[in-house]
């Protein structure tokens, strides 16, 4: 069976991709394309675009979402599980090793200094990511207001993140309904 034969390649390729991507997420897209569209031809270019579009609009970790959807498109539900397992193994092994190693290193001044340096670097990297996201996503006054409100609620008032996300979803629906009503009213006047 063709689908059955695809399970191991899915698992293996996603394992390789996941092992070489540091930082994760969207950086995996070109690698997935190379492996499954160009090399193995499991997916067409168009299907790949679908996968990328959907992964951005569903919850969950982007890298795992991409593995699940690519696997599903290539070999059904078993394919989804095979790809996800492949993606999960390398980071799992790496983290368990690192965690076991660093567990005994707390309270050392040099290690504390090293972490302070790395944490400051991460702060700057997240800051850059926020700027980039802002440029990509904020196109209207509505989206600007939602982003600023979410930031103030989380960062200053320390509202919990789940409430902010649920709230943003509700605001999106309310806004859509308001826009629709306005359209109808102006349409009726003509």
């Amino acid at each position: 069976m063709k689908q059955f034969q695809r399970l191991w390649p899915l698992c293996w390729e996603f394992g390789k991709i996941s092992a070489v991507t540091v930082g994760g997420g969207v950086a995996m897209i070109p690698l997935i394309e190379e492996a499954f569209v160009d090399k193995r031809k499991f997916l067409s270019e168009e299907e790949m675009l679908d996968v990328v579009a959907v992964t951005q609009s569903v919850p969950g970790i982007i890298a795992v979402n991409m593995a699940v959807l690519t696997g599903y498109r290539a070999a059904g539900i078993a394919g989804a599980f095979a790809a996800a397992a492949g993606a999960a193994v390398p980071p799992f092994a790496a983290i368990v090793l690192v965690a076991a190693f660093f567990a005994g290193l707390g309270g050392n001044r040099a290690v504390d200094g090293m972490f302070l340096g790395v944490r400051s670097a991460v702060t700057a990297l997240i800051f850059l990511a926020a700027i980039k996201l802002y440029r990509q996503t904020i196109k209207t006054k509505f989206s600007f207001l939602v982003a600023v409100t979410a930031f103030v609620l989380l960062g200053i008032f320390r509202v919990d993140a789940v409430s902010v996300i649920l709230g943003a979803g509700v605001v999106g629906v309310v806004w859509m309904l308001l826009c629709r009503r306005k359209q109808k009213e102006s349409g009726g006047g003509q």
Partner: peptide, 26 residues
């Protein structure tokens, strides 16, 4: 519509993450 609300909301989340990290670094 839900995603139109959540997408800009996640920028707020990432921006808030900058503050959490700054508080334990800078």
């Amino acid at each position: 519509a839900v995603l139109d609300g959540i997408r800009p909301g996640t920028i707020g989340l990432v921006a808030a993450a900058v503050i959490f990290f700054a508080e334990s670094s800078i």
